[in-house]
Design a protein around this nucleic acid. Structure first.
Lengths: 144, 144
DNA sequence: ATAAAGTAAAGTGAGTTTATCAACAACTTA
DNA sequence: TAAGTTGTTGATAAACTCACTTTACTTTAT
């Protein structure tokens, strides 16, 4: 049930970009310094966020990164799925990346006891994370 | 946000033991066969469940494992914590195994944006898993 | 005594996480 | 256009975790 550093850093980076949204572009070392993230690792993360169309970057002297979508259009759920994979604790209850469990004795037959409760957990997690956007994220922490 | 195989197998094993509760003791290969778990791995799991006082075992010819507590006294949350560690997605929001995040720029200062939302997630997960017992687990699947 | 069963710890191979590094491409300003 | 700054990409790798496996006991019933 763990969130990876990758996702954590990704969220922190997007938090900074949200605070700067509409005001400034941030360079990787700014983000890295403010959130204490290893720069090279951060690059990797920013790259996948860019490929996913969440942020854009400008090279050259006054370059840096900017949010490309509105903060309220990006949910934490999206971000974590992007960086960490499905939210579901177990493949067979994932809605965005369903995977049949190959070895399970209940597969394709009757309902599986584990599957049932984990489905509930998944819904709870997704319910929170898919309804919490970067805008909410930043709104809770106006200063800093 | 993943549940390990260890926890999954542990839950399945306890499910079988719950069904047999009061009726029979189960041997490791019975459990393994019914739930398709590698026997040797299962042993390891049963051992930690035993050390934690959830089950007891008898050696020798007609040995096997039995639930030692009442099914409604064991929650899935307990089991998963035992086998997988804290439910919290991030150490600094765990209630049973709190860990200060060393590198976080918000540590000890103001509230951390990530910490806040992850706290909510933790509460949701724990809320479900700590109120769902083996008894509920088995009640939902009377036959099989 | 012996065979069935559980106990315990260490080992293993594959994969993931968390980075680091180097070379390159592109952009900006002077 | 040259110099300098920044982003892009891919390779590499240490450390760790996962999911078992192996090996070597110890206990118990018959």
């Amino acid at each position: 049930m763990k969130l990876s550093k990758k996702s954590e850093y990704g969220l922190r980076a997007l938090f900074e970009l949200t605070l700067a949204h509409g005001k400034a572009t941030l360079q990787r070392h700014d983000i890295a310094a403010r959130q204490r993230i290893p720069v090279e690792f951060l690059e990797q993360i920013l790259l996948t966020l860019k490929r996913a169309g969440l942020i854009s970057s400008r090279r050259g002297v006054n370059g840096g990164y900017t949010l490309i979508k509105q903060p309220n259009e990006i949910t934490l759920g999206q971000v974590i799925r992007l960086l960490d994979g499905p939210l579901a604790p177990i493949g067979c209850v994932s809605k965005t990346a369903y995977q049949k469990c190959s070895d399970c004795p209940y597969a394709n037959k009757t309902r599986c006891p584990v599957q049932q409760i984990m489905g509930t957990v998944r819904d709870a997690i997704a319910g929170i994370l898919d309804h919490y956007s970067l805008a909410d994220f930043a709104a809770d922490h106006p200063k800093s």
